[in-house]
Nucleic acid binder design. Structure first.
Lengths: 142, 142
DNA sequence: GCTAAATGTAACTATTATAATTACATTAAA
DNA sequence: TTTAATGTAATTATAATAGTTACATTTAGC
């Protein structure tokens, strides 16, 4: 899982919290990164329909009406990521040895199972529930 | 999760499969990496008591008697790794804004939950079960 | 219409993380 | 005593990731 995931969640929660049009500049400031990176990630969320993006002067990003119900699984999918990702593969598929030739596929299957477990969990966590965790027992303040 | 994990699993399965003392050179050849890296990882497994390591001429690594029962969770712990690891943190703990200051901790909590889910799954997978997957329906061959 | 201020996106650079390599002290069999 | 192995650290090379720059596109406001 890339840092784009926490960045996206942070942005969605901040947008929900503020409830108005926010520029990539302001989001970047709050998230502590740069505006171009914010736009790159938020652009993906927009393509997936998870956020509204306006254009032109005075524009920016805005939550959709049911933003609180967006699951983190949906965010992950919008970014086309997986929680567990190991790029390196052991062995060599062309070897006669079944351990060497088969291990990479078996491990990939395992990563798939782990990702399914994670996605099941992420399905139960929403942008709204993250917001609640941040403001639990406290009134909403800027 | 680092590539050390699949490397370690591969090595353990190969050792179980062969059932004799194997050098880091031979393991590296089967895994498709270099001997020093194998030794670095297997050394950790040895410290955790998951594999026997001999010293001196003609030495190498050997499975312990119950190697098939070693869980992948135990392997992961021996390597001191977590399935989900996102190093980048959004926001700034010193900000007045609770979203900016609190998001990193909330996300860390989430990663912890995901890792727990994954470890529960890894507890059910053993070196022996991986070996079975590789040789399912086939007799054990070199 | 013109200007200003915003997003979308691509190309590039810098930084960090990871894997590979090299080297050598230590160990124990022959 | 020699040889062949592991243990481990230091270094280098490569790959992945984050940051930066640039500019075309869009639209509000004058």
């Amino acid at each position: 899982m890339t840092a784009e995931f926490p960045l996206a969640v942070h942005a969605l929660v901040y947008l929900l919290h503020r409830g108005q049009v926010i520029s990539s500049q302001e989001l970047a400031d709050n998230i502590c990164t740069n505006p171009a990176r914010v736009r790159k990630v938020l652009s993906k969320l927009h393509h997936a329909g998870l956020v509204e993006a306006e254009r032109g002067q005075g524009s920016g990003y805005l939550t959709r009406p049911d933003a609180g119900a967006i699951t983190l699984r949906a965010v992950l999918r919008a970014l086309d990521e997986t929680p567990v990702a190991v790029s390196w593969r052991s062995g060599d598929v062309d070897r006669a040895c079944q351990v060497s030739s088969g291990m990479a596929a078996v491990m990939d299957g395992l990563y798939g199972q782990l990702n399914e477990q994670c996605e099941k969990k992420l399905e139960t966590v929403t942008v709204g529930s993250i917001n609640d965790q941040l403001f639990r027992g406290k009134e909403k303040e800027k």
